[in-house]
Structures are given as structure tokens and as C-alpha cells.
Design a protein around this nucleic acid. Sequence first.
DNA 1: ACCTGAACACCGTTCAAGT
DNA 2: ACCTGAACACCGTTCAAGT
Lengths: 228, 228
Amino acid sequence: MATKPSGAGSKRARAAPQPAQEAPGEPPLSRDRIVATALELLDADGLDGLTMRRLADRLGAGVMSLYWHVDNKEDVLDLALDSVLDYRGPPQLDKPEDWRAEVVHMLEDWRASMLRHPWSTSLLPRRALGRNILSRLELLSKTLSGAGVADADLNAAIWSLWNYVMGATITRASFDVSNEDRAAAQQRLEQLSGPYPTIGRSRLLLDDDWDGAFRKGLGFLLDGLAPG
Amino acid sequence: MATKPSGAGSKRARAAPQPAQEAPGEPPLSRDRIVATALELLDADGLDGLTMRRLADRLGAGVMSLYWHVDNKEDVLDLALDSVLDYRGPPQLDKPEDWRAEVVHMLEDWRASMLRHPWSTSLLPRRALGRNILSRLELLSKTLSGAGVADADLNAAIWSLWNYVMGATITRASFDVSNEDRAAAQQRLEQLSGPYPTIGRSRLLLDDDWDGAFRKGLGFLLDGLAPG
DNA sequence: ACCTGAACACCGTTCAAGT
DNA sequence: ACCTGAACACCGTTCAAGT
């Protein structure tokens, strides 16, 4: 929390008079550029791939230059997570009053957005609530409220849905990475079927209808939360 | 996966003939001792507090000695997480047929066990399924199956509950740490109530009836999943 | 206002060696 | 079978300084 620019920082010289930089096309550092490059690194190599040094390298800057625009690595991660959660809103529906379809769309998009950047799920237990997360929560609240959920029940409803979506997303991402391991684990499970007969038989670890399971559970939750 | 001891390794000399160690009471290294000490470190200082060097120090051993008993740091974390999830089973109930109470107990205990060691929640998107996790899944499966859930629906039911519990636990832990931040965030939210009127008004970020919300959502889920 | 290199205090792990 | 120190290839961040 120093006297650094915390805004968007878009008030930057368009074509600065050759700032003595090496590459002529290299634009100056900025919060946005740092976050965008962090995303590239994260998408390419996961959480371990993001290093302040690697980040600076790719930006053609010294490591410490980053710290002018950004508090620390935590800050970069917070910004990266939030940038994944940009949301353009629900599509215009035929029946404009179908709140349930809207909610399902919002939550499926939330999950899908994170799964497109699997590293984001392991970042999740995170105190910082960025703009995009708050926007999504706001929209969800408004929709549920408009659908008739009483004010007294609203928070419980929001948090239940949030919990469900986050859990589903995290789980999905963590098991997706290691499909082979999963198969191996299931096999081991069935062989020594002594201790785990039920989940061995049901092939729990091989089930891969994640999307279906997600929608099903979400449906049950909405059944319970919804007014009528 | 080298030729290291992966069992419990309890076949150890009771009172070895003074193994030339410094402290005379210092027992020899072992997987169990390593994990136990890792837990101490994690409980005391969180995830950042666990370092192979610190761990070795506290065990009165050289850093590299750990690597005889353990593959690497990941391994230590996997073991630490699983050791938090030890479960002694549901209590003997009055009505032995009340499957629903049993399930609620199991899942509340799961959540509580992790919240007792908050670092465990940020470890969660984890591929390694330890004994205790598998035991819990097995017990949950058996109970639901016994309650009449069809085999075809069993996996979806398990994963829905798992997702919900994991999401709730992770969320709870992450917001618990930073109560002040939460209050500050809510205040900021309400002041610039422009963009987030609904969650500003509902005081979403100040709501702290986590346990109630958890039970409520769980109830809805069970309503939907249960046969009758 | 913005960027920098050197330096500090750490990491996890490989390796070759000891008993 | 079990333990070890030295060394390697890294980390994030402070600081004092440059323009």
C-alpha cells in the first residue's frame, strides 16, 4: 500500500519519444501488461511456471521494475485470478423471466472459465475478492432476489451455490490433470478390494461424467433454494 | 517410487544401543515421526512454515536424511493432508437406520477436521487419495447405497456431496483468516454501492453463519439425492 | 515517475560419500 | 540400511542508486 498507481494506469504516452529501450516496439511496463504476461506463463507452465524473474524476462525488463507496478507476487496472482473471471453476462433468453436458466448459465460459465485456466483453481482459497468475482456475486444475488428468494435466505443461497461451484471446479481440475493416475488408482482399489468394496465396484474414480454430475447436483440445490 | 520403505515401518529397534545420536531420548527418524512433526510446523505457521530444512532441524537430523523416508516435499504434504482426515466412524445412533443423520455427521466431521488445520484446505486440489480419504468415501458410498440410492446414481451423489463439502470448507477457511479484511471489504462495497447494490445491502461479506448455511445447503442436496 | 543491479536470506534436491 | 555436508540452481524481496 505505498504511493503507487493502483488504477488502470491507461494514461500513458501513446508513442513515447523512443524511451531508450532496446526493442523499439516494446511498449512500456504496465499493470495490464504484467498481468497479461503472467497469464501466458501460468497457462503454459502452471503455477510453478510463474516466477517474478521469468515474468520480468518475458517482459524485457529487470525483475525489480515489476515492483513499481505491483506490490508483490501475491498481488500478481490475485490479479491473474480475477482476470480469468471476466463475465459478459447471460445471453438474451427467449423467456426473459427464466431465472433458473440464467443462474445455471452463470454458474456453468464460472466453472468453465476457471477450467480453461486450471491453475486458477489451486489459487482459490483466496481472500482477495476482485472486481470480476464481486460482479458475478452481485449478478447472482440480483437474479436470485428477483426470482423471489427472501432477503433473509439470500446469503445462505449465495454461499451454498458458491461452495458447490468452487468445490466442483477444484475437484474437476485436480482429477483432470492426472487421468492415468486415476486409472491406476482405481485399478489398485479394485485389486485390494478388501477395504474399499463399494467405491471399487462403482468405479468411482473412473467416472468421468463431471458435467452431468455438476448439473445434477446444481439442480438439486436450486430445487431446495428456489421459492417455487 | 524407489526401493524405499513405504509401509508403516514400525519394525524398529526399541532401545537401540545408543545410536551415537546427540540427544539420548531422540528416537530414530521414521515416516510417522516426520509426518507428525510436519503437522506441528503446519499448525504453527501455515503452509509457508513447512520447509524441509526446518522440518529436519526440528527432528534433529540433517536435511537430506528426510529423503530416505520420504520421496520429496510433495510426499510430505500428501501424508500430512491424509493424516488430518483420520475418521473414527459415526457414533452409535439411537435409530440405527437413520442414514441421513449418519451422512450429515460424516460430512460435518470431514469439514470440521479440515478446519482444525486450516492449511489443509489450501492443499486440497490434490490428486493423491490417501487411505483416510478413501475410507471416508467408501463409508459414504456404503451408507448411501444402503439407504437406497441406485447404483447408477451413486457416483453422481458422492461427487455432488464431495464437491459441496470441499467448496464449503475451502471457502470457510479462506474467509476465516481475514476477518478484518472482510469487514473492510464490505465497508468499501457499501460505500461505492453503485456497482454492487445487492450484495452491499445483504451484507454478504459479513454473514458469518457458516455452519448454518452449510447445513442448509447440505440438506437441500440430500433432499434431492435421497430416494424418499 | 519509472527503472535497475547487487545483495540477502532463503528454497528443494542431486550427488558422492560416510557408517 | 540409514544418514550426511557440500554444492547446484534456483527463489522473492530490500536497498541504495540511477535517469
